[in-house]
Every structure is written in C-alpha cells, then in structure tokens.
Design a protein around this nucleic acid. Structure first.
Lengths: 123, 123
DNA sequence: GGGGGTGGTTTCCCCCGGGATACCACCCAA
DNA sequence: TTGGGTGGTATCCCGGGGGAAACCACCCCC
C-alpha cells in the first residue's frame, strides 16, 4: 500500500523559485516527486502542495501531461476519480532531477551565503 | 590557447524557454557552458549569445554572480577589461547540468512529439 | 433534498522576465 | 580629434507566470 503523502512533505524545502535549477514551471519538480511512488489523485497532491492554488496545480499538471511526462487517467464507475502518474518519459527525468536535488542539497547553504554576501556588499 | 567561442555555438540548440529543465534564468545555462573552458569577456560571450540583448546578458551574469556561481573580475591597467569565470561552486554545477543536457539530448524528440500530439488532440 | 467529497474553472490582478531601441563613459590608436 | 572597441545603462513595452478568491458540475450517502 502506498503511503499517503505527508502534509509537511515540502515544509523544509526551499521554494522552487529560489532554486537556480528548475524543472518545468515553479511547482513541477515537487509534483514529479509526489508521483515517484505511484499514481496520485488531484486531491492527494493538494495535501503536500497546500500552498499551490488549484488553478496553478492544474496548469502545472496539464503542462507535464503535454510534455508526455505525466499521464492523466479518468476512472469512470461507481466512484469516478482522476489519477496522475509518471510516464516512462517522466520516470526517465527522475535521474537528472535526482542529480539536481543532490546538488541543491549539497550546495544550498553555500548559495544562500553567496547571495547574502552579494546583497550586503551591494546594498 | 582557448578557442574563441563560435558564433553558431547555439544555433542548433533549442531555446531555453522550450526546455522543461532550466538552470537559472532563460540564458544562464548557455552562459555557464560558454565559461566551461575558462574565463571569457563580456564581448566574447556576446558572439555565441548574439540573440541576447546586453541588458539581459548583464542581468543573467549578475544573477549568476550573486549566487556565487560566476566571478566577475575587472582587470585594470593599460587595456582594462572584465572577465567572467566559473567559481568552484559554478563548476560543481556542471555535473547536474551535464545530466540535464544528456536527458534533453536523449528525449528531446520524444518530448516534442508528445507536445505535438497533445496540441493536435486538444486543438 | 441537503451535505460532503472530487476535480476542477473563472475572474481579477500584479509583478517580473524578457525583448527592442537608444544611449553612455572610458580608453586607446590613428 | 575622431573613431572604434569595451562594457555596459536607461527607457519603454509586452506577455505570461503566479496568487487570491469565488464559483461550479457531478456523484454518492444520509
């Protein structure tokens, strides 16, 4: 059984807009990481991504779908719902994404220090 | 002796804005690749990046400098000039950048096909 | 038939990245 | 003294990304 996504999954994570390495739009990298373990529903994604408004999350998912990285499946039946999952192409992106995450994890402090020093020097 | 940067260095390369993986702003990844072989002058960078206006290139370089990825050195003397070079932190980014470039090189066509199929299906 | 859950859409607004164009100070060589 | 190279700025403008808030259709269950 897949674990539900924890609400504080990205609390410690820097906002994407501060990271010089970006995959897709502002939230795409976090979406991809949410889908790493398997398919997720829209409302399921909204738990860790509570700071993302539904409009923006929809657009991000549509963009990933357009690029062939994510597949959107509508399950009809008694309790109809929608599931998003990574395609093989999307999975292939996990490798460079992991490389980027590793770099960020290793050098994030260094980068923030550089920014602070630059801002202090230049006012 | 370092080779001068060829003017057509990025003619075959997809514009950064189409690539889902981005390092820094629109042109930062190309700037970093220009600095891979060693220090470069502003006017030297403008050769392969002829489509980038000086304002935008300056801002991109300033941003990289602020993040501690690039060092800007003013050489005073008889013929004063400015040189930009990668810092160790900037060099450390070459690895995830290479991973991202490899992914793009391998899957770019696939991604474009997915986009075309999506756009054709949805109008 | 009312409430809750699902999966969004619509509208409005703001800001920032990016492009075009023009201009600029400094220095050197002719 | 005039021109060219260097390394940029200044100004204007536009489009799109992103956020806030409200609303919505559909379905099931009580």
């Amino acid at each position: 059984m897949r674990e539900p996504l924890p609400a504080d999954m990205f609390d410690e994570l820097c906002p994407s807009s501060l990271n010089p390495i970006r995959f897709g739009d502002k939230w795409a990298a976090l979406v991809i990481r949410c889908l790493e373990q398997g398919p997720r529903r829209f409302s399921e994604l909204r738990v860790p991504l509570s700071r993302v408004t539904p409009k923006v999350l929809t657009r991000s998912l549509r963009s990933l779908e357009r690029d062939g990285l994510v597949r959107r499946t509508v399950h009809v039946g008694a309790a109809p719902h929608v599931e998003y999952e990574l395609t093989p192409l999307g999975r292939s992106m996990l490798q460079p994404l992991a490389a980027a995450c590793a770099w960020t994890a290793e050098h994030w402090d260094e980068l923030l220090d550089a920014r602070e020093a630059y801002d202090n020097a230049a006012g």
